[in-house]
Design a protein around this nucleic acid. Structure first.
Length: 212
DNA sequence: AACCGGATCGTCT
DNA sequence: GACGATCCGGTTG
C-alpha cells in the first residue's frame, strides 16, 4: 500500500475477540464505514472508551443482561446501540474475550468520506471537525439509531458497517485517561484518544443532575 | 474556557 | 418515579 492510500483490509473478527481495554487503543486511526441507502460515510476513529462488562460498574452490562444490552452479551464484532438522555444514540463495538459483555464506545472521529451527507445530518455544526466530535454527534453523522443494534461489523456483506485497518498511529500519539461523564471507576484509564487531534471531544467531568 | 439550564424519554428500580 | 457513557446555545470570566 502506498503512503497516500490507506490499507482497506477489513479487520478480522479475531481482532475484536480480545479485552476491550486492548481493542480500544488499537481502534484509533482505523476507518469505520457506514453505508446506508442515502450513501456512505467513512470515519477515522480518534477517541474511544473501553467498558469491561459485568465487572465494570460503569458498564451497561454491570447489572446483567436486559433487553436493551442483550447485544453486549453476544459475539464480538457486533454493534451495540443505545438511546440516552431522551434524544441521543451512542454506538459501541462489542469485544471479547468470548461472550464477555465488553465493548468499546465510539466517542469521536474525523469524517474522511461522505462529508456532505454527514453535514446534512448535522445542520448545526460549524467546523467540519465537529461533525463527529462526541458520541451522539458521531451517530448522528453516521445516521445510526436503535434499528442498527446488533449489526455485524465483520460480515463480508449484508451489514451497513465495516471496520477497516486504516493507518494505525504511532504509539506516542495515543493518550489515555479516565472515561467521560461517569462517576464510577475513575481510577481506570479506559478513555483513549489521539493526542492533538482537533476532532477529539472535550473532556467533561461527571456532573450530578438536579431537578425541580 | 468554563459553567449553566433546557430539551426529552427509554430503561430499570 | 428517577436518572442518564449528551448536546446546544447562552452567559460569564
Amino acid at each position: 500500500m502506498s503512503a497516500d492510500q490507506p490499507d482497506r483490509t477489513p479487520l478480522a473478527r479475531s481482532f475484536f475477540d480480545r479485552p476491550s481495554r486492548l481493542v480500544a487503543p488499537e481502534l484509533l486511526g482505523r476507518i469505520l464505514v457506514c453505508t446506508l441507502p442515502e450513501g456512505a460515510v467513512e470515519l477515522r476513529l480518534t477517541e474511544v472508551e473501553a467498558y469491561e462488562g459485568p465487572d465494570d460498574p460503569a458498564s451497561h452490562a454491570y447489572r446483567g443482561r436486559t433487553p436493551r444490552n442483550a447485544v453486549m452479551f453476544g459475539d464480538p464484532g457486533h454493534v451495540y446501540v443505545y438511546f440516552t438522555y431522551g434524544m441521543h444514540y451512542c454506538m459501541n463495538l462489542v469485544t471479547g474475550p468470548g461472550r464477555d459483555a465488553s465493548a468499546v464506545l465510539l466517542r469521536a472521529g474525523e469524517v474522511v468520506s461522505g462529508v456532505e451527507l454527514a453535514q446534512s445530518r448535522r445542520s448545526n455544526s460549524r467546523r467540519s471537525a465537529d461533525l463527529a466530535s462526541g458520541p451522539a454527534r458521531l451517530t448522528l453523522a453516521l445516521g445510526v439509531d436503535r434499528s442498527r443494534d446488533g449489526a455485524d461489523a465483520c460480515a463480508p456483506s449484508g451489514s451497513p458497517f465495516r471496520v477497516l485497518a486504516g493507518s494505525p498511529p504511532p504509539p506516542e500519539r495515543i493518550a489515555a485517561g479516565p472515561r467521560t461523564g461517569i462517576a464510577q471507576a475513575m481510577d481506570r484509564p479506559l478513555r483513549f484518544w489521539l493526542r492533538d487531534d482537533p476532532t477529539v471531544s472535550p473532556y467533561r467531568r461527571h456532573t450530578p443532575r438536579t431537578r425541580s
